[in-house]
């Protein structure tokens, strides 16, 4: 088992456990966990996971299943957003 930090921002923040601070929660993941299994395991709809960063680096949709997550990783996810 490894522990990763999952950060859910903007409208996805509502899916965090109550009492989460700074939009973050710890998630225990098993052997062979990937970004895709983390998203599925947390019950996040794919269409809402528009921008996914692992330790700040962008992970394209088609790489999520092939991107492992390991102890200490920070996975940050946003729905479609804009700004300026």
């Amino acid at each position: 088992m490894a522990t990763v930090t999952l950060k859910l921002f903007a409208l996805l923040g509502a899916r965090l456990p109550p009492g989460s601070v700074a939009n973050a929660t710890s998630v225990a993941v098993g052997e062979g966990a990937t970004v895709a299994t983390l998203i599925a395991g947390f019950g996040l709809p794919d269409k809402d996971c528009h921008l996914v960063l692992v330790n700040g680096a962008f992970i394209p949709v088609d790489s999520r299943a092939a991107t492992p997550v390991a102890e200490g990783d920070v996975v940050s996810i946003w729905p479609p957003i804009g700004g300026g």
């Binding site: 950060k7 921002f9 903007a10 409208l11 939009n23 921008l51 960063l53 700040g56 920070v74 940050s76 946003w78 729905p79 479609p80 957003i81 804009g82 700004g83 300026g84």
Partner: peptide
């Protein structure tokens, strides 16, 4: 996104 968070939604994105 913009109605709910405004442009300020970027603060965490750009920092992360």
């Amino acid at each position: 996104g913009l109605p709910k968070y405004g442009t300020q939604v970027l603060m965490n994105v750009i920092n992360e």
